[in-house]
């Protein structure tokens, strides 16, 4: 696909839709959680107000250049993930900057934000940040292994590294989805999905009661606003990849919204049922259960 200038406003439109959807969806999920607990829950627009409040703070403290760049890198990870992955299959407007090898780039961008955060949090000099980041990096690294294996398995299966082609191969019937044609790869990748969504049992990185609140301890005002933006963008961007690779992609926005919500709820359900893992437990869990499934998926292909 050759580059055209009109792609830029189209991609920004996609970003805008996803951002607003993310703001409302994360609030909705918090609200559902509150209702389950018998509370009324936050207003559905609370995320917007929090964001505005943080931008409106009058004073800011910097700890150095990397402290600025940490949230920027993190947001770059989320936005980059959205911009280089086709959002709606078959739509000219929401193809974004998808290209032949975008699967590899997506794998890289999934990791990018965490690395950026590590640099920024280290500069802030707070011990809780350092503890949180070292936990986060080791956990994400372990969780990425099954994802990488699952992705290799399906790129072998479809003989391509282009996400659009993979989505195209899954069209037609629900039984063409990778979920049914290659269940092992899906299961392996879902290990990584649950492991990197920052929800229980894998949320020891943030651990509000133990190391308040991990990497972003020192972040405030606009820095925190950037990270909040990423907090709603990034999980959706990641879910988009999973939807495209394993759940048949989406051909329209309503389908997109429903599928993203359903896939996101997987991690929420697991999160409310299981208590928090310690870091060595979660790494052990990924290596013991995630990795063999991933290897098996490759062997099956």
């Amino acid at each position: 696909m050759t580059f055209q200038w009109i792609q830029i406003p189209y991609a920004l439109l996609t970003l805008f839709i996803i951002l607003n959807y993310g703001m409302l969806m994360t609030a909705l999920i918090q609200k559902i959680g509150a209702r389950v607990g018998g509370r009324y829950g936050i207003p559905i627009w609370q995320n917007y107000i929090d964001l505005l409040k943080n931008i409106a703070l009058r004073s800011k403290i910097s700890h150095g250049v990397m402290f600025y760049l940490g949230p920027v890198f993190r947001l770059t990870g989320g936005i980059g993930l959205i911009l280089f992955v086709p959002t709606i299959y078959g739509s000219v407007m929401h193809q974004n900057f998808s290209f032949a090898g975008d699967l590899i780039l997506a794998l890289y961008f999934v990791f990018f934000g965490t690395l950026g955060m590590a640099l920024g949090a280290a500069e802030s000099g707070h011990p809780h940040s350092a503890i949180g980041v070292s936990r986060g990096l080791s956990q994400v690294t372990a969780a990425e292994l099954p994802l990488a294996l699952g992705v290799f398995a399906i790129s072998l299966q479809y003989q391509t590294l282009n996400i659009t082609d993979i989505v195209a191969a899954q069209q037609g019937s629900i039984f063409n989805w990778t979920l049914f044609t290659n269940p092992l790869a899906t299961v392996a990748a879902m290990f990584a999905f649950v492991g990197t969504m920052m929800r229980a049992p894998f949320d020891v990185v943030l651990a509000p009661q133990e190391i308040p609140i991990g990497p972003p301890t020192e972040y405030h005002s606009s820095y925190l606003a950037l990270m909040q933006t990423n907090r709603v963008l990034y999980p959706i961007a990641k879910t988009v990849i999973y939807m495209n690779l394993f759940f048949g992609g989406a051909t329209s926005w309503p389908e997109f919204f429903v599928k993203i919500f359903a896939i996101y709820m997987v991690s929420v359900f697991i999160g409310v049922v299981y208590p928090r893992f310690r870091v060595e437990q979660s790494i052990q869990f990924f290596l013991k259960w995630g990795l063999p499934v991933g290897v098996l998926a490759i062997l099956m292909v």
């Binding site: 509150a34 018998g38 009324y40 829950g41 936050i42 107000i49 009661q209 308040p212 609140i213 020192e218």
Partner: peptide, 22 residues
């Protein structure tokens, strides 16, 4: 914070670090 009085519905939250609290 709990169901009986639930302050979250008024946009009130608790933050663990002074940097993020108002």
């Amino acid at each position: 914070m709990t169901p009986r009085f639930d302050a979250y519905r008024y946009g009130i939250q608790w933050r663990p670090t002074p940097r993020q609290a108002n």
